[in-house]
Deep mutational scan, measured.
Amino acid sequence: NKFNKELQWATWEIFNLPNLNEEQVKAFIDSLRDDPSQSANLLAEAKKLNDAQA
């Protein structure tokens, strides 16, 4: 299933962003679980936040 692979990839990527704190990671993962179809958008937002906090 396409969404499942995207969800797994986005989850792994978010867990490995070095500049997000635990609460931010949890919030993004919760959002992914709530709406897996938004995984690409949520990953992009997480990466933006990660870069901003570098």
Rank of each mutant, 00 (worst) to 15 (best):
N1V: 03
N1T: 05
N1Y: 01
N1K: 01
F3E: 13
F3Q: 04
F3T: 05
F3M: 03
N4F: 09
N4T: 05
N4D: 15
K5F: 06
K5D: 15
K5L: 09
K5M: 08
K5H: 14
K5W: 14
E6Y: 09
E6W: 11
E6K: 02
L7M: 07
L7A: 12
Q8F: 09
Q8G: 05
Q8S: 06
W9T: 10
T11N: 05
T11M: 05
T11P: 02
W12L: 13
W12S: 12
W12T: 15
E13Q: 14
E13A: 08
I14E: 04
I14F: 04
I14P: 02
I14Y: 01
I14M: 04
I14N: 02
F15A: 14
F15I: 15
N16A: 10
N16M: 08
L17R: 00
L17T: 00
L17F: 08
P18Y: 07
P18D: 06
N19A: 05
L20A: 01
L20M: 01
N21T: 14
N21I: 12
N21K: 13
N21P: 02
E22F: 10
E22G: 11
E22L: 10
E22K: 12
E23A: 11
E23H: 13
E23N: 14
Q24R: 01
Q24M: 03
V25R: 13
V25L: 06
V25W: 03
V25Y: 03
V25P: 00
K26F: 08
K26H: 10
K26S: 11
A27T: 14
A27M: 14
A27Q: 14
A27S: 14
A27K: 12
A27R: 14
F28T: 01
F28M: 04
F28P: 00
I29K: 01
I29P: 00
D30P: 00
D30A: 13
D30F: 08
D30E: 08
D30H: 08
D30K: 05
S31D: 05
S31A: 15
S31G: 11
S31W: 14
L32M: 14
L32E: 00
L32D: 00
R33H: 14
D34L: 15
D34S: 07
D34F: 13
D34M: 14
D35N: 13
P36M: 06
P36L: 07
P36Y: 04
S37G: 10
Q38G: 07
Q38L: 07
Q38N: 12
S39Y: 15
A40M: 13
A40Y: 10
A40R: 10
N41M: 15
N41G: 11
N41H: 15
N41W: 13
N41A: 10
N41P: 03
L42V: 14
L42D: 01
L42H: 04
L42I: 15
L42Q: 03
L43E: 02
L43M: 06
A44K: 13
E45Y: 08
E45K: 09
E45V: 08
A46G: 01
A46W: 02
K47T: 04
K47G: 02
K47W: 08
K47V: 08
K47Q: 06
K48Y: 10
K48Q: 14
K48A: 11
K48N: 12
L49T: 08
L49V: 12
L49N: 04
N50V: 01
N50L: 01
D51H: 10
D51I: 11
D51S: 12
D51W: 07
A52H: 10
A52N: 09
A52P: 03
A52Y: 10
Q53W: 07
Q53E: 05
Q53S: 06
A54P: 07
A54F: 09
A54M: 13
A54V: 10
